[in-house]
Design a protein around this nucleic acid. Structure first.
Length: 615
RNA sequence: GCGCGCGUAGCUCAAUUGGAUAGAGCGUCGGCCUCCGGAGCCGAAGGUUGCUGGUUCGAGUCCAGCCGCGCGUACCA
């Protein structure tokens, strides 16, 4: 098909996207083709971006500079020729002396009518995020609790970050499969199972009534009893009994399996309850314990050996990864014949890609396991376990996160060096939030205060965890996250509360129903600078959600929502809504409020943070 | 030793994946309530982005080498 050398006299009228980045990209690409024709390099990018500084317009194209070399021209001349062919009718203001600036930046200012039109188009049920033409299947590994152990801060990050990543892909219309890779197999599990069975036999515990706190204590004492350092002579015998229990468990001994199952149920129930309180979608059906792979492990190793992917070394079986640039091999079988977590993880990749149809497998796991995942991913690809039906490999990502630190900059622990129980941490946040709510809004009923405290306290913890750059460590501080100032969860919740308050009042005092504000009910008029700032931000929403999906960095959504909230505050301060000069302006501003509120609602929902009517 | 990560205002953190004059909050100083929720808004001061080179029109961002901190590094998970 021949390429049109001449610029089209008018842009194609349809389809009209509401994403300015896309519209401008198309217009600029047309202009670039018009200006340079066949000389335009393959894949030349208009490089449209929202401008950081209002003085440089609303959007800018940085296309001219990279083209300088290929075209053998000065960037400013290139920019001039692009602008010459540029048709921005119906989108942006005409060019002026500021259009080309610096080395060759092309600055664009949307015209007010187009801005309103774009906002209007975005004001759809999906807020400008259309379902993908072909949805992908995304598997998210999250939570990762261990049998007979309470959830602690380490699980907080995996659960919160993993759930948010899952929500982002769901928001974009993809199919998401959550996997809680429960640590329910192996020698440590056998130790605690043995301990539980012994105590039950002696009548010291009641298996029907035992709770996770007791199991947690038993887990620790069982570990100690097998450690020569603390148990001395008895350790060897205890360890031997644990190994015997492991064999019994593996061979399906009814009594052992029953005890193990009971421990598992208690753990999963408690985990699901904590996750529910965290407002994170982790349900019993997402549980995929290591035990569910137990029958595949021998086959995995045999398969790897028979195809030459793995080899024997020092009595163990390894996958050599030097060709992938990794010095350390992946161990898939110990010299005593036992399997390792790497073996299980290999089986998990195979299941997730080849059985579940995963296109992208994402692990929300501590950064300290980086090497393990580099090895695992390389080995899985080498073995072909990540291969999709079309022959290409699924994308494997380790969404690594840093450590939660205490005020002393050491990993967050109690004074005695124990892990902090996650449920206790949540209680404390809710209690502190409750005190603040009581002080700031004493008129709320006790019941409402309780609901608000729960949403604010939990939201504050989650938001802090999500708002920091994922891979960095961060310092846990109730005071900072509950200060209700700056980039915090409560600030976003408050911004939304104010919006909802206005909408309630609009109905009560002006009879304006919220539903009537969509579509033709209220014409948008974007005039004041604060209105324009807010409008431009709202238009960025779909792009931000996609960026989070690409980068797996939820903090980008947090930062964006914070910007929307501050822009709304500026608007709210300077632009009277209910007391606007006339009905048209009032309706326009109410609609802008509602649209802002919908972006915040959708954003908070994607972060898994509860939106409130009052606080 | 080797590998991975991090280093940005006094403190806690951003910076549209290489774009223009590095931005927020806290703290400090100064303003804004006959006004839709003040848990708010506006302003001021505060920076050699750990150091030194390099790549290019352009570097907090990429590369190399140092410095500092953290975490890993063959049979725990």
């Amino acid at each position: 098909m021949p390429i049109a050398i001449c610029p089209l006299p008018s842009p194609p009228p349809l389809p009209m996207s509401h994403d300015p980045l896309q519209i401008l990209s198309e217009r600029f690409l047309d202009a670039m083709r018009g200006a340079f024709g066949d000389r335009l390099p393959e894949g030349a990018d208009p490089m449209i971006a929202a401008s950081r500084n209002p003085q440089f317009g609303d959007y800018q194209s940085n296309a001219a500079m990279p083209l300088a070399k290929a075209l053998g021209m000065k960037p400013r001349d290139i920019a001039a020729q692009i602008v010459e062919k540029l048709d921005l009718s119906g989108v942006a203001e005409p060019v002026d002396e500021h259009t080309i600036a610096g080395p060759g930046f092309i600055n664009i200012r949307l015209d007010r009518g187009a801005l309103a039109g774009l906002l209007d188009a975005l004001d759809s049920p999906d807020l400008g995020i259309e379902p993908p033409e072909s949805p992908s299947t995304i598997v998210v590994d999250l939570c990762g609790v261990n049998l007979a152990k309470q959830m602690h801060v380490g699980h907080l990050r995996s659960t919160v970050i993993g759930d948010t990543i899952a929500r982002v892909f769901e928001r974009l219309g993809h199919r998401v499969i959550r996997q809680n890779h429960l640590g329910d197999w192996g020698l440590p599990i056998a130790m605690v199972t043995r301990a539980v069975m012994d105590r039950a036999a002696k009548g010291e515990i009641d298996l029907d009534a035992i709770d996770l706190d007791e199991l947690d204590a038993l887990y620790k004492s069982a570990q100690k009893s097998c450690d020569p350092e603390s148990a001395g002579e008895a350790a060897a015998e205890n360890l031997a009994r644990a190994k015997t229990t492991l064999v019994a468990l593996q061979s399906g001994d009814a009594e052992t399996v029953a005890a193990w199952k009971r421990i598992s149920d208690i753990t999963v129930n408690e985990c699901v309850a904590v996750c529910a309180r965290l407002h994170a979608t982790v349900l019993p059906e997402h549980t995929a314990g290591e035990s569910t792979y137990r029958d595949e492990l021998a086959g995995i190793v045999d398969d790897l050996l028979s195809r030459g992917v793995a080899e024997e070394s020092r009595g163990a079986v390894i996958v050599d990864l030097k060709d992938a640039g990794i010095a350390e091999p992946l161990l898939v079988r110990k010299s005593d014949g036992g399997f390792l977590y790497a073996t299980t993880d290999m089986a998990a990749i195979r299941r997730r890609v080849q059985k579940f149809g995963g296109d992208r497998i994402i692990y929300a796991v501590d950064a300290r396991q980086s090497l393990h995942f580099r090895q695992l991913f390389a080995a899985a690809k080498k073995a072909g376990y990540a291969k999709r039906p079309d022959g290409t490999d699924a994308q494997l990502d380790h969404a690594a996160f840093g450590t939660v630190l205490g005020e002393d900059n050491r990993p967050f622990k109690t004074r005695t060096g124990e892990n902090v129980k996650l449920a206790d941490l949540l209680d404390q946040a809710v209690e502190r939030a409750g005190a603040a709510v009581k002080e700031k809004n004493p008129d709320l009923s006790p019941e409402d205060q309780r609901i608000v405290a729960e949403a604010v306290g939990i939201g504050a913890i989650k938001y802090t965890d999500l708002a920091n750059d994922r891979v960095r460590d961060y310092v846990f501080s109730f005071d900072r996250m509950l200060a209700f100032e700056g980039n915090t969860g409560p600030y976003l919740q408050y911004a939304l509360v104010r919006i909802r308050s206005i909408l309630r009042k609009a109905k009560a005092e002006h009879g304006v129903d919220e539903a009537a504000l969509g579509g033709d009910g209220a014409m948008l008029r974007i005039e004041a600078p604060e209105e324009k700032d807010l409008a431009l931000l709202i238009l960025r929403f779909p792009g931000v959600v996609r960026t989070v999906a690409d980068s797996l960095e939820p903090h980008r959504l947090c930062g964006y929502l914070y910007e929307v909230s501050t822009a709304f505050s500026g608007f709210f301060q300077n632009c009277p809504v209910l007391r606007a000069q006339d009905d048209v302006m009032r309706l326009s501003r109410l609609r802008l409020c509602r649209l802002t509120g919908r972006v915040l609602e959708s954003g908070l929902e994607t972060l898994g943070i509860v939106a409130l009517d009052r606080m």
